[in-house]
Amino acid sequence: MKFSIGGSLKLAFRPWVEGLENIPAEGPAILASNHLSFSDSFFLPAVLDRKVTFIAKAEYFTSPGVKGKLTAAFFKGVGQLPVDRSGARGAGEAAIKSGIDVIERGELFGIYPEGTRSPDGRLYRGKPGGLARVALATGAPVIPVAMINTEKIQPPGKVIPKLMRPGIRIGKPLDFSRYHGMDGDRFILRSVTDEVMYEIMKLSGQEYVDIYATAAKRQIADAEKAAKDAEKAEKAAKAEKADKGE
Results as ranks from 00 to 15, higher is better:
Met1Lys: 02
Ser4Lys: 06
Gly7Thr: 08
Leu9Trp: 08
Leu9Phe: 09
Leu11Phe: 04
Ala12Gly: 06
Pro15Asn: 15
Pro15Gln: 10
Trp16Lys: 14
Val17Tyr: 12
Pro24Lys: 07
Gly27Glu: 08
Ile30Glu: 03
Leu31Arg: 01
Asn34Pro: 12
His35Tyr: 05
Phe38Asn: 15
Ser39Asp: 12
Asp40Ser: 06
Asp40Val: 10
Pro45Glu: 02
Leu48Trp: 08
Arg50Thr: 03
Lys51Thr: 13
Lys51Asn: 11
Val52Gln: 10
Thr53Ile: 14
Phe54Gln: 08
Lys57Arg: 14
Glu59Asn: 11
Pro64Arg: 06
Gly65Cys: 01
Gly65Phe: 02
Ala72Phe: 11
Phe74His: 02
Lys76Gly: 14
Val78Ala: 05
Gln80Ala: 10
Leu81Phe: 12
Pro82Lys: 05
Val83Glu: 01
Gly87Glu: 02
Ala88Pro: 01
Gly90Ser: 10
Gly92Val: 08
Ala94Trp: 04
Ser98Glu: 14
Gly99Lys: 10
Asp101Gly: 14
Val102Ile: 12
Glu104Ser: 03
Gly106Leu: 08
Leu108Val: 09
Gly110Arg: 00
Gly110Ile: 03
Tyr112Ser: 11
Pro113Thr: 09
Arg117Gly: 00
Pro119Leu: 01
Pro119Trp: 00
Arg122Ile: 02
Leu123Met: 08
Arg125Gly: 05
Gly126Glu: 05
Lys127Pro: 01
Pro128Leu: 03
Gly130Gln: 04
Leu131Thr: 04
Ala132Asp: 04
Leu136Glu: 02
Ala140Thr: 10
Ala140Lys: 06
Val145Leu: 04
Ala146Ser: 07
Ala146Asn: 13
Ala146Glu: 08
Met147Val: 03
Met147Arg: 10
Ile148Leu: 07
Asn149Phe: 08
Lys152Cys: 03
Ile153Met: 14
Ile153Ser: 11
Gln154Arg: 15
Pro156Asp: 00
Gly157Thr: 09
Lys158Asn: 11
Val159Gln: 09
Val159Lys: 15
Ile160Asp: 07
Leu163Tyr: 03
Pro166Asn: 12
Pro166Gly: 09
Ile168Gln: 05
Ile168Glu: 04
Arg169Ser: 13
Lys172Thr: 13
Leu174Ala: 01
Asp175Glu: 08
Phe176Tyr: 09
Arg178Asp: 12
Tyr179Phe: 14
His180Asn: 06
Asp183Val: 13
Asp183Ser: 15
Gly184Arg: 11
Asp185Cys: 03
Asp185Lys: 05
Val192Arg: 10
Val192Ala: 09
Met197Tyr: 08
Tyr198Met: 14
Lys202Ile: 00
Leu203Gly: 09
Tyr212Val: 09
Ala216Lys: 13
Lys217Asn: 00
Gln219Gly: 01
Ala221Val: 05
Ala221Arg: 13
Ala221Asn: 13
Ala221Phe: 09
Lys225Cys: 00
Ala227Gln: 12
Ala227Asn: 06
Lys228Phe: 03
Asp229Tyr: 07
Asp229Asn: 14
Ala237Gly: 15
Lys238Ala: 10
Ala239Ile: 06
Ala239Gly: 15
Glu240Phe: 07
Ala242Ile: 09
Lys244Val: 07
Gly245Pro: 01
Gly245Met: 05
Glu246Trp: 15
Glu246Ala: 08
Glu246Arg: 13
